[in-house]
Design a protein around this nucleic acid. Structure first.
Length: 370
DNA sequence: TTATCGTTTCCTGCTT
DNA sequence: CAAGCAGGAAACGATA
């Protein structure tokens, strides 16, 4: 059992890193309402001490899963740290997510960033090496993800990216008019969100269009990569009682309330972002998800939540939403009934069944992917 | 700019 | 009584 405990810990670490909580330090109230068992989910990657002073969006997350915005912030961090002349960098070539970044060779980074490329390469691999113990799980999920993309979507876009990365790792995008870019020559507008991110992993848009505008420093000469203007207001029940809050998803923070926020990932990023896929992926790793969920009837696709709140917290971590609960998660699950992604299982609590519009969970499909 | 999608949030009522 | 389920309504952010 020692082995499985270790696997469990690794998985927990991995999940914590991959589905990193939105705050650098999990809020105590979050920890408090988790059970003893759930606390293992909070274990997370410990970055190098030098990184701890700043807590930008990429902080604490595996480089492999950085969004484009996080990559940019990371680059900006090292530009500033090394007092590097950013004008020498072709920022139109920086439109890559962490997945792509991790596939860049030292030479490629040097080509784009000049002498800073070596530094970036070294720093990147320092961070990556910290989480080396997790790479087998990452690889596992990555492989499965690529296979499922090919099998279920017949697009193969992600694998195309993966294989073309070394030779053409970057999308040298022409500057496009768009939202808030920190880059010179782009007139303060970003091309990040304007570029289609087919299968490129995280497709995070760093600067939302309705975040109150005026978030971006328009100074075209300034490379200011640490703008962080995504996030949600943390309304509490008192606000609700006093009628300060409308129904539905909370609005974003106003600018003055943004200090404590982190960036948020896209809901539409292609990498297993949908709730049902997230659930499926947990189920497909029974040896790793110890105690979260289990198959009730593997053939029929019937499954059960064993630790519903823990799964909800995990989902919340993935979506950078610390207020996720099983109640909310289950509402989203119930919407799947209409779309026949899930089927009702009457009279059984916490039990769901995959429907005909779901895929990738059947034993045959799983075997085919391997 | 607008429509749509996939949630997220809140709610009421019901069932286990 | 608590927890879970069902589903309406509205809101949200990302994307097409």
């Amino acid at each position: 059992m020692a082995g499985s405990c270790e696997i469990s810990n690794i998985f927990s670490n991995y999940i914590s890193a991959m589905y990193q909580p939105e705050e650098a330090q999990p809020p105590m109230e979050l920890l408090a309402h988790l059970g003893k068992e759930d606390n293992l989910l909070i274990t997370r990657w410990n970055p190098a001490p030098e990184l701890e002073a700043e807590k930008p969006a990429w902080f604490g997350e595996l480089p492999y899963f950085w969004s484009k915005a996080q990559v940019l912030e990371w680059i900006g961090y090292h530009v500033e740290k090394n007092k590097y002349d950013a004008s020498a960098i072709n920022f139109s070539c920086c439109n890559m997510d962490g997945y792509t970044l991790c596939h860049c060779t030292q030479e490629q980074l040097r080509l784009i960033f000049g002498p800073l490329g070596d530094e970036l390469y070294t720093r990147l691999h320092e961070i990556v090496s910290v989480s080396d113990e997790l790479t087998w799980i990452i690889d596992l999920l990555e492989k499965e993800d690529m296979s499922s993309q090919e099998i279920f979507q017949d697009s193969g876009k992600r694998s195309t990216l993966a294989t073309t990365c070394p030779s053409r790792p970057l999308q040298c995008a022409c500057p496009l008019p768009g939202r808030g870019s920190p880059f010179p020559g782009n007139n303060g507008k970003s091309n990040l969100s304007a570029l289609p991110p087919p299968g490129t992993g995280m497709s995070h848009s760093p600067n939302s269009q309705d975040s109150g505008g005026s978030d971006i420093d328009p100074d075209p000469t300034e490379v200011k990569l640490f703008s962080s203007d995504d996030g949600f207001a943390d309304y509490d029940k008192e606000d609700v009682k006093h009628g300060k809050r409308k129904r539905g998803r909370p609005r974003k923070f106003s600018k003055e309330n943004r200090d404590c926020l982190e960036t948020k990932k896209s809901k539409h990023s292609p990498r297993g972002t949908h709730l049902w896929e997230f659930i499926r992926d947990i189920l497909l790793h029974p040896e790793l998800n110890e105690g979260l969920m289990k198959w009730e009837d593997r053939r029929e696709g019937v499954f059960k939540f064993l630790r519903s709140e823990a799964v909800a917290q995990l989902w919340g971590q993935k979506k950078k939403n610390s207020s996720m609960t099983y109640e909310k998660l289950s509402r989203a699950m119930r919407y799947y009934y209409k779309r026949e992604i899930l089927e009702r299982v009457d009279g059984r609590r916490l039990v769901y069944k995959f429907g005909k519009n779901s895929s990738g969970w059947k034993e045959e499909e799983v075997l085919n992917r391997k």
